[in-house]
Design a protein around this nucleic acid. Structure first.
Length: 309
RNA sequence: GCCGAGGUAGCUCAGCGGUAGAGCGCUGCCCUGAAAAGGCAGGCGUGGCGUGUUCGACUCACGCCCUCGGCA
């Protein structure tokens, strides 16, 4: 059993933002003959390197990176798109007899990759807009009631105020003729094909927050304002515009508040993001955690390599 | 020093003679094609300090301390 999977190991590095996933992934890639696949909804975009904290030129030279800076900001990205792009990349890396190292903090993307997505259609913007209008006229409860009639299983899982998810569930039924509850049973996880090893980096909340604060300061020193200003002039996708820092800086450039305030807002929003990431990853029992303050990087690397071999 | 306003949850502030609320923050949680997004839940805090009035004071009175504005 173990022999068959010997060359089919996939390594994943997860954890909150600013914890050092990129760095660890690169070190592992060097030691294991691996290649890094970014599992990140924002690093995929071009022209957003500073805001998305994408790996630097040097880092990209140190190890081969995939799915970084590959998408025009005007295009939408999604967990499904990521999966579609990542699967062949993983297969190709394995074919080269190298180790795929998936690194990133987008929890849903990790799940989409590891546990799979049920087969369905892509987003239908017109339908979503129509539903949105319905909600502003009749309230979300009304729409939730509609879902309850169509797909009671999903309705029970989705809060009446969670408009996005109600709309998505209705959209799935509208475009496929089948309910989300039905489709979910057709999800095929990746672990059927590969040996998945997930490692998480963690630290005390205080430590994570102070790392975020200094990273945001650095971001601003490195030209985040200029980058955001450039993006603000173009029309960028709904996905890309949610990158942390973009909205806050745009409003600063708009004269709504000063630079210090903008910085504080970015810090606050990044801390909240990290908090949500922690909640997300915490519940995944498959993750093997390493506290970065209790373990030197070399030790973590050694332990991971031992796990993989 | 005088006059005025005020000191209530981390912050900004409501309110009331019967042992306190909101928004934001914060913490916890949920999450299947927008996910760096979206949603849900959680508020005992010496009510600046002291004395008094009262069955009972955060709420009234007096004194003190502190903050802000104006006058000197």
């Amino acid at each position: 059993m173990k022999r068959i999977r010997e060359n089919k190991v996939i390594l994943l590095i997860v954890g909150p933002t600013a914890i050092g996933k990129t760095r660890l992934a690169i070190t592992l890639a060097k030691k294991l003959q691996g290649e890094v696949i970014s599992c990140d909804s924002m690093q995929a975009y071009k022209g957003m390197d500073i805001l998305s904290q994408a790996p630097s030129k040097d880092e990209k030279k140190a190890a081969k990176h995939h799915l970084v800076g590959i998408l025009d900001p005007k295009r939408e990205y999604s967990a499904a798109t990521f999966r579609k792009k990542a699967m062949p990349v993983i297969a190709a890396i394995l074919k080269r007899k190298r180790v795929p190292i998936v690194a990133g903090g987008s929890g849903l993307y990790v799940r989409a990759l590891v546990d799979g997505l049920f087969p369905t259609t892509a987003a239908d913007m017109k339908f979503r807009e129509r539903m949105q209008r319905f909600v502003s006229r009749n309230g979300s409860q009304e729409l939730h009631d509609r879902l309850l009639r169509i797909d009671p299983g999903s309705a029970r899982l989705i809060h009446p105020n969670d408009v996005r998810r109600i709309i998505r569930a209705l959209e799935i039924y509208e475009t496929t003729g089948r309910t989300m509850t039905e489709l979910k049973t057709a999800t095929r996880p990746l672990k059927d094909r590969y040996d998945i090893k997930i490692f998480g980096l963690i630290a005390s909340r205080k430590k994570i927050y102070s790392r975020i604060d200094s990273r945001v300061d650095k971001m601003f020193d490195c030209g985040a304002v200029k980058e955001a200003g450039k993006l603000a002039k173009k029309r960028i996708s709904r996905t890309a515009e949610t990158v942390l820092g973009f909205r806050e800086i745009k409003r600063y450039l708009n004269g709504e508040y000063d630079l210090e305030y903008a910085k504080d807002l970015v810090k606050m929003n990044t801390r909240r993001f990290a908090k949500r990431q922690l909640t997300w990853f915490r519940s995944d029992g498959r993750i093997k955690w390493f506290d970065i303050t209790r373990n030197k990087e070399a030790k973590i690397v050694r332990r991971i390599i031992k796990e993989v071999r």
